[in-house]
Design a protein around this nucleic acid. Structure first.
Lengths: 339, 339
DNA sequence: AACGCTAATCTAAACGTTTCGATCATGTCA
DNA sequence: TGACATGATCGAAACGTTTAGATTAGCGTT
């Protein structure tokens, strides 16, 4: 900018005024300055501007896994929304690791991001402190955090799983395996509650042997399913509480020589774009990814626009049960195939 | 830092020296400063540091679509690699739009990213100029760019498609539909060349009616497939040159009342994590996503480490044909089903 | 002619670091 | 004892912006 000012024989203040339109500058000087900008190929340095202004027009976004199609879709929507608003997005994947998340959020705050969207991981204590210290707006997404009282957009997970389980129960299933992620995050907790409540509402026992837990990865779903299928009294259906794990479930079913839905019914949380096309067409609980992403972005953009003092807003969206053909009705002959 | 200095009754220079280890500071002062840092909860401001140092420890990454599993996987690997190296990643999705890409790259450069990894979109002219102007290292990924002579990691697309086509031809297919993305980017061009060469090598004609082009989205694959399937002399196999489009292909096949592989064989570029499990199990060309991401990251990290003057390095990786069950051998009764 | 008002422009400080060179005490050596 | 190297610390400039406040010129009023 100094070079531009010299070339145009004006002060840097005038150049700044012209660029930002913060003051009127005469036509002559405007012309000289614009010419100089073109000649020199000047681009304003956003870092210097950020330092002075205290704002970076950049937000931080952390998710557990970007390869999980649910997060991929949401990230994509958020990215678009902030792109439109002229913000850049710094993306971090925490890989479901607490320390990683911790480090990454600090990294983002050090870089003076203007706001944060967090699909958190693990215990909320540290996150709580970080959020309290940093005075940037934070939006929680997908996962709430006890003690962190801030904007959030989540699903009614309990209801969604309740509905899915009720569907299975209505089909005649009585022993339904349930594969959950680590239960220290709110959706896993709520989904599990939905599972239990649906069973109880139908007067069915909650057999602990039917509940298995894993760490969100395909391999965890595989192992959990293997355990479920080797039970003496095998479940007739399996519900997987997240979508990477259901791939593992399907692989285990295949490897053990069974097939879905003939031998075992499968449903899961989170939809896939290809669910309609490949066999078995999985019955899933679809989250409104577009809405989740947009709402999270809107909540944060609203804060960034200056609405700092409004009380925390918590949006709860509804899931939708996509009934396809991976669950079969159980007739008189209950899970007839012998292992 | 000023506050820390005052609290510890030292100068800011000493605080800086201690934090960065750039000079020895006495045990007494060290203790005082460290205490002050803890008391105040001081965090170094990375923006101010960037301004002074001329480096942000942030890189920019632009991809056409993050929802495409291929890019998702690669982004994930790159993200992890830079995370380990202490860099932040600014992610941009260009949505296959030239202007968007242009804007985003400028945005990234304004923010003084230390380097750029680009899976480019469209014509290379503007990218070429931007890359020339910006004196940050750039690594091209997945897609080369004519006239941009920089580090790159790409696939041997031509060979990969040649192999896939040869496989189909060996199965007895003679009329093979081909669905490509817009051909102004190198992989699409190279893949098409592989298609033509395989046909020619087998002494088969290249029927232009069998080649359809779309814009990388599922709907484009759907439309292209609809056109192919309504041809008088329908192809017995379809190869889709990218993976979102193959979902559209499968939907079109379903909607038209045919089935794969009985009525029509399908193969495509890019693997899916679930390809092994759902029916039909798609035969695909798998890209070494892990290697692509790691190599791209390594190339850039090497430049960032100071190796600026080495001549541009171009890495060409090999694809792998994953033969599953979505393509059937053509016996005596050639594509028998009548439309 | 003196005055005040407005519009245009400029000067200089500030944002929070890093770093060069200066300062100063201390100990060593001739 | 004086010269000098050494090590620790500091002062101040610089990075490239923004912006408050000062300055100047032009013009209309009285």
């Amino acid at each position: 900018m100094l070079h531009v000012a010299e070339a145009a024989r004006v002060s840097v203040a005038t150049v700044s005024a012209l660029i930002n339109g913060t003051a009127t500058v005469s036509p002559e000087l405007s012309a000289r300055i614009e010419q100089a900008i073109r000649d020199i190929g000047y681009k304003r340095n956003a870092i210097a501007r950020s330092l002075k202004m205290g704002t970076t027009r950049t937000i931080g976004l952390t998710v557990p896994h970007i390869t999980n199609p649910f997060f991929t879709d949401v990230v994509s929507v958020i990215q678009q929304a902030f792109d439109r608003a002229g913000y850049a997005v710094m993306l971090c994947c925490t890989d479901e690791d607490l320390n990683t998340q911790d480090d990454q959020i600090r990294l983002l705050l050090d870089r003076m991001v203007d706001g944060l969207i967090v699909a958190r991981v693990g215990d909320g204590a540290i996150l709580k402190r970080i959020v309290a210290d940093a005075n940037v707006p934070v939006v929680l997404m997908d996962r709430l955090c006890e003690g962190v009282d801030t904007d959030a957009v989540v699903l009614d997970n309990q209801r969604a799983v309740f509905d899915a389980m009720s569907y299975l129960i209505n089909l005649g299933h009585r022993r339904i395996g349930y594969i959950t992620g680590t239960s220290d995050i709110s959706p896993m907790h709520d989904r599990m509650t939905g599972y239990r409540e649906a069973l109880q509402a139908a007067g069915l026992p909650v057999a602990e042997e039917l509940v298995r837990s894993g760490n969100f990865h395909e391999i965890d779903g595989y192992n959990a399913t293997m355990q479920l299928l080797s039970l003496h009294d095998r479940p007739s259906a399996i519900f997987s509480a997240n979508n990477p794990m259901v791939i593992g479930t399907m692989k285990a079913i295949r490897d053990i020589g069974l097939s879905c839905p003939e031998d075992i019914s499968v449903a899961c949380f989170d939809d896939f774009p290809w669910s309609d096309v490949f066999q078995p067409q999985l019955t899933t609980v679809a989250q409104p990814v577009q809405a989740i992403g947009e709402q999270a972005a809107n909540l944060l953009l609203d804060r960034l626009a200056g609405n700092r003092d409004a009380p925390p807003r918590k949006l709860v969206l509804k899931g939708r049960l996509m009934i396809r053909n991976s669950c079969r009705p159980l007739g008189a002959a209950v899970h007839s195939v012998s292992a």
